[in-house]
Each structure stands twice: as C-alpha cells, then as structure tokens.
C-alpha cells in the first residue's frame, strides 16, 4: 500500500506516493529521475549511491525512503548552482580525478560532507573519510589531491 512521503530534494519541496519498501536510491533514480546517484552494488559497500541527507553523507541503497520524511536531500545534481560548479567539482576536474565517472557523484558528496565537518583534515583524514567509496579507475591519488586542494583553497 502506497504511503505519502514529503521531503525536499535539491532545494525543491516534493511529495511522493511510494511503496514502503522503496529505498531512497530507487526513489531518487527511478521515481525522480535523479540518475546522478548510481547503483553499484546494492549492499552498501561501494558508496556510488551516496547522497546527503540533512547535509550528512549516507548510502541511499541502505535507506528506506520513508525515513527521510521531512528531510532535505542533496544529490550530485543539486551541488552546482546552475552552471556554477561547487569548488570540489571544479577541483576534481582540474586534478584529473575523474575517469569513468561512475564513483564521482558519491565521492564528491562524501568529500563535501566530510569537509563540512573537518575543514582542516590531513591527507590521512581525507583517505579515512572516503574509505567507504570505491574507485577502480584512479587509484584514489588524484581524488585525494583534488580534495586536499579544495581544503587549501578554502583556507
């Protein structure tokens, strides 16, 4: 039986009627067409499904959408202001931190959430912060470089 869910996604108030077992991932990807959030493993291990709920990075494949009643969701599509990219997005591009791009949305959002709470991390801190996001293309080097560069810029 469908149930009502009211939440904010990328700044817009939304109302959805969903089956209670709908995950936040499926709500975003299938019902709302925010396909920037990816499905990599459906078991909470790869981090490609990461979005922000009330500013905190979480794995949307492990969250029942109804738990987001009244909450504010930010997906990768909501990070830029129109064509004005977020500093992390710009840094990822400039440092060559994006290859196939599948892990990128989750990686960027995790980094944003981590930096919001740790504005002055060491490189090891950053690596720990993104340890829940798998990347098979880059070896993580340029991803860490991009995040550290953003930290330096923010200072």
């Amino acid at each position: 039986m469908k149930m009502k869910l009211k939440l904010k996604v990328n700044g817009a108030e939304l109302e959805a009627f969903i089956e209670p077992h709908t995950t936040l991932q499926d709500l975003l990807r299938e019902d709302l067409d925010f396909t920037g959030t990816k499905e990599g493993c459906s078991s909470g291990m790869c981090g490609a499904c990461t979005v922000l709920v009330d500013g905190k990075a979480v794995k949307s494949c492990l969250i029942i959408a109804l738990q987001c009643q009244g909450k504010e969701i930010t997906t990768i599509e909501g990070l830029a202001r129109g064509e004005q990219l977020h500093p992390l997005q710009t840094s990822f591009i400039e440092h060559g931190a994006i290859q196939c791009g599948f892990c990128t949305p989750g990686m960027v959002l995790t980094a944003k959430s981590w930096l919001d709470e740790n504005p002055n991390p060491s490189e090891e801190d950053v690596r720990l912060g993104i340890s829940g996001n798998l990347c098979r293309c880059t070896g993580y080097v340029k991803i860490v470089d991009a995040i550290m560069a953003t930290v330096a810029k923010n200072k």
Binding site: R29, D33, F34, T35, G36, T37, K38, E39, T75, I76, E77, L79, A80, L85, Q89, T90, F92, I93, E94, G96, I98, Q99, C100, G101, F102, T104, P105, V108
Partner: peptide
C-alpha cells in the same frame, strides 16, 4: 599538454548518462 578530460564536466555534475540511467 595536460588537457583536462573533456567528459569530466558532465561526470562531475552527474548529468552523464550511463546505460542504466536511460529510459
């Protein structure tokens, strides 16, 4: 020269469509 990956912008913004994203 270290020209930036031409597809990076779309991927950074999450607007690059992969097969599973298509309807």
């Amino acid at each position: 020269k270290p020209v930036k990956n031409v597809d990076a912008w779309k991927k950074a913004m999450g607007i690059a469509k992969f097969t599973g994203d298509l309807k």
